[in-house]
């Protein structure tokens, strides 16, 4: 396998396939599969960001979809005001402005909720992040100005120089580029000194504290970075769907992101991408065979957990026991 290693080869093949396949699908008249691939890539961005805290930092967040929602509404609300008036300071169809808003708001939300949530550990952390996610969900559900539960139709996609999001291929390639950049960023982070501390604290928090590291701050930083990336995914998702609704950020959506990460194999950069791909493709394939596709899908999940430890990446790299419980 050369110096690249198995994981490296998988990454290369998958990312090349994601680069080549969708344009080919478009030219062969299968535009729907380009749209499917776009959804896949955007979900993969969010899953990769979740994996930064879940897989490397041991912070199992059950409220990650809230960031997608915040990013999406940060894109949609300015467009709404541009078309229907009100809040002139926010009204805009400028992509950079919307993106900045998405980044800023998700960072702020991550900072506040992270500061509180990170006082807890394990399942308590999982539940408190879920609680914050649900609060955002009910907040947007009660905002009847923006459609409440019915959601908001986005009249115009973000305006950016050079790319037009109205062209499905541009939107796809932009999302793909963002995914590559995010994967690279996460890879750089986890292999830096910062990442070493983060990973070390997952295994043995006390040891690193004794060594003089403030692991709380490391975790909080990672949590904010992950939140911001998911906010960007939300910005892209709003552009993709031209529609936003609180349904994007319910707890079941956070659950799906979590399953993508675990399914693909936590603690590898490509794992969540595989998980998102498996999730979207299996769902599409099974549901085109039967409306009761949840049944075979559920059985598959159970079998993967029972026999294929470490998710899809675990199966590929032949690791036997990626999910052994760390001794406390």
């Amino acid at each position: 396998m050369g110096r690249l290693g198995k994981a490296g080869w998988v990454t290369l093949i998958v990312m090349l396939a994601l680069l080549i396949l969708p344009p080919v699908l478009l030219w062969s008249g299968n535009e729907f599969y380009l749209l499917l691939a776009t959804r896949l890539v955007i979900l993969a961005i969010a899953a990769v960001s979740l994996n930064l805290i879940l897989g490397y930092g041991g912070m199992v967040s059950f409220g990650h979809a809230a960031f997608i929602g915040i990013g999406a509404y940060a894109m949609g609300i300015p467009v709404y005001h541009e078309f229907y008036g009100g809040l002139p300071g926010v009204a805009s169809t400028n992509g950079f402005f919307q993106l900045a808003l998405a980044v800023g708001l998700s960072a702020l939300f991550a900072l506040i909720t992270g500061a509180i949530s990170l006082r807890t550990k394990g399942v308590y952390f999982l539940m408190i992040t879920m609680a914050f996610g649900q609060m955002v969900f009910f907040l947007f559900q009660s905002l009847s100005e923006y459609g409440g539960d019915d959601g908001l139709v986005i009249e115009q996609r973000s305006e950016l120089p050079l790319v037009s999001f109205d062209n499905p291929l541009s939107l796809y390639l932009t999302s793909y580029a963002v995914l590559v950049a995010v994967m690279l960023l996460v890879w750089l982070i986890v292999n830096s000194r910062f990442g070493m501390v983060l990973r070390g604290a997952k295994g043995n928090d006390q040891r690193l504290i004794t060594l003089g590291y403030n692991t709380y701050l490391y975790r909080l930083t990672a949590y904010v970075i992950a939140g911001v990336i998911a906010g960007v995914a939300g910005f892209l998702m709003a552009n993709f769907a031209s529609f936003i609704s609180p349904d994007m950020m319910g707890w079941s959506r956070s659950g799906e992101l979590m399953f993508m990460v675990i399914l693909g194999g936590a603690a590898s950069v490509i794992g969540p991408v595989l998980g998102a791909a498996a999730f979207v493709v299996i769902q599409e394939v099974l549901s085109s065979w039967t409306v009761y596709w949840h049944l075979p899908f559920g059985i598959m999940l159970i079998l993967i957990v029972l026999y294929g430890r470490g998710g899809v990446m675990g199966i590929i790299s032949g690791r036997g026991s990626a999910h052994r419980r760390p001794d406390e």
Binding site: E31, L35, L36, F243
Partner: peptide, 16 residues
């Protein structure tokens, strides 16, 4: 019962 699944189903009917 989900907006995004409904949109995806519509996309498929329209495009595919």
């Amino acid at each position: 019962f989900k907006p995004d699944i409904g949109k995806q189903a519509t996309d498929k009917l329209v495009k595919q």
